[in-house]
């Protein structure tokens, strides 16, 4: 099961990169980046998954004494929690700059951005 999820995550990363490389519309590139972002998160969570174990939350079904043999690795989850929040911040930043670009150029085509070409 972890392998299926991991494969899906890898495919999402590839699809996202493909979109970011081949689209010329800035908004579509940002959409593709969010897809790739989701893919990375899925791969990281899938690495932490272990067969036949449950979430790292102690309660009646997972007593403290059994925790070692019952829970999955909590570290990737804490990492992904951070990654999702920061990913949303990055998306907001990219969108704000895309808006400024459109304000200046009246277009969303990345090939019209020629100031830094030599």
């Amino acid at each position: 099961m972890a392998q299926i999820a991991m494969a899906a995550g890898f495919i999402l990363i590839l699809v996202g990169f493909y979109g970011a490389l081949t689209n010329r519309n800035i908004l579509r590139m940002i959409v593709a980046f969010t897809v790739a972002d989701t893919g990375v998160n899925i791969v990281m969570v899938a690495v932490g998954y272990m067969r036949g174990r449950t979430a790292p939350i102690l309660d009646e079904t997972v007593p403290v004494a059994d925790a070692l043999s019952r829970i999955i690795d909590p570290v990737p989850q804490a990492l992904v929690l951070t990654a999702i929040v920061i990913g949303m911040g990055i998306t907001a930043l990219m969108l704000a700059f895309a808006y400024r670009f459109y304000e200046k150029k009246r277009t969303l085509d990345i090939t019209k951005c020629t100031e830094l070409k030599w």
Partner: peptide, 19 residues
Amino acid sequence: VLFLLLASPDVAMTEAAIG
């Protein structure tokens, strides 16, 4: 939903609300 199946409810909530 996939995160929920992978036994990480914390990540699932974050992804649903933010992502």
